[in-house]
């Protein structure tokens, strides 16, 4: 299995990469970790004529902190996030989500920007990015813009990013005091992708739920925030009964639940509820 022929260019700056995208239009593809793109090209499901490899652009790598926000370069690998001291200290949910992805080799190469751009409906990052109210920064021919996580995912493998844009950074607000998070998933046993994955961020004061954000992936063609669960539990005590009742709302309003050989629609709906309940219980404990 070998990809179709293409020209390969590895620019050293974002501006150069943008110029290449402009010059080559839809026939060009960006290459990050390659762990979604190269398998797709080997299957000839994608046959770009020009590959623009982002890996030599240092400015797209690394994690830093600036005024209450973690700034993650799009080319930061899952492994770097899994082992980042800054992520562990400021937003452990990021490190926990990274550690849940695929296997060691996949985490060594795959990047957060590539995963978000690819928008696999069973990818892990979307759940955490939604729960954390992150913003995705992208540059295009018309300059830079910022896209809220909640506006980012549009459909299966489809995001708000244009083909001529490059994701540069993910901005994740550092949660305030008394706030904890967790990510739980049931992996499809062969690929590791989520049959259902739930990221929870909650603020707990004397066992009362002051705030709750629940991001769900793997269940619908578009990852989503379980708004029904969030509003149900806000203001209530984190008792097992309250949590269980709220988790029942994990697929409320979701009408495009996925179904495939790995899991039926009914099973996925049930998983969403069970993993929502477990994730809230675990974060609130």
């Amino acid at each position: 299995m070998i990809p179709g022929s293409f020209e390969y260019i590895a620019p050293s700056s974002v501006d150069e990469a943008l110029a290449l995208l402009k010059e080559n239009g839809e026939s060009a593809k960006l290459l990050a970790g390659g762990h979604s793109l190269i398998p797709t090209m080997k299957l000839r499901l994608a046959e770009p004529e020009v590959i623009v490899d982002l890996n030599r652009i240092g400015a797209l790598k690394g994690i830093s902190e600036s005024s209450g926000t973690l700034i993650i370069g799009a080319l930061t690998t899952h492994y770097e996030l899994e082992t980042s001291d800054l992520a562990h200290r400021k937003i452990p949910l990021l490190a926990q989500t990274a550690a849940a992805i695929g296997d060691v080799q996949v985490r060594n190469k795959g990047t957060i920007g590539g995963s978000l751009a690819h928008a696999d409906p069973a990818a892990d990052w979307p759940a955490a990015i939604l729960a954390l109210d992150a913003e995705i920064k992208a540059v295009g021919q018309g300059g830079e813009r910022s896209i809220k996580a909640s506006d980012f995912f549009e459909d299966l493998y489809t995001t708000a990013i244009d083909p001529e844009e490059i994701i540069t950074e993910i901005h994740v607000p550092i949660p305030g005091a008394n706030t904890k998070g967790t990510y739980l998933k049931l992996p499809q046993i062969a690929s590791g992708f989520a049959l259902a994955g739930v990221a929870v961020i909650l603020t707990q004061v004397e066992n009362i739920c002051q705030n709750l954000a629940v991001g769900v992936t793997g269940v619908s063609s578009v990852p989503y925030r379980a708004a029904g669960v969030e509003s149900d539990l806000r203001g209530k005590a984190f008792s097992s009964d309250n949590i269980a009742a709220a988790a029942e709302k994990a697929v409320d309003g979701i009408d495009d639940v996925l179904e495939d050989i790995h899991a039926s629609e009914a099973y996925r709906k049930n998983l969403a509820k069970v993993y929502t309940r477990r994730a809230i219980e675990s974060a609130a404990s």
Binding site: Y8, L31, G34, V106, K109
Partner: peptide, 13 residues
């Protein structure tokens, strides 16, 4: 220094 599945990486990289 990184374990990689070398069928998922281009030689040119």
């Amino acid at each position: 220094g990184m374990a990689v599945k070398t069928c998922a990486m281009l030689a040119i990289q």
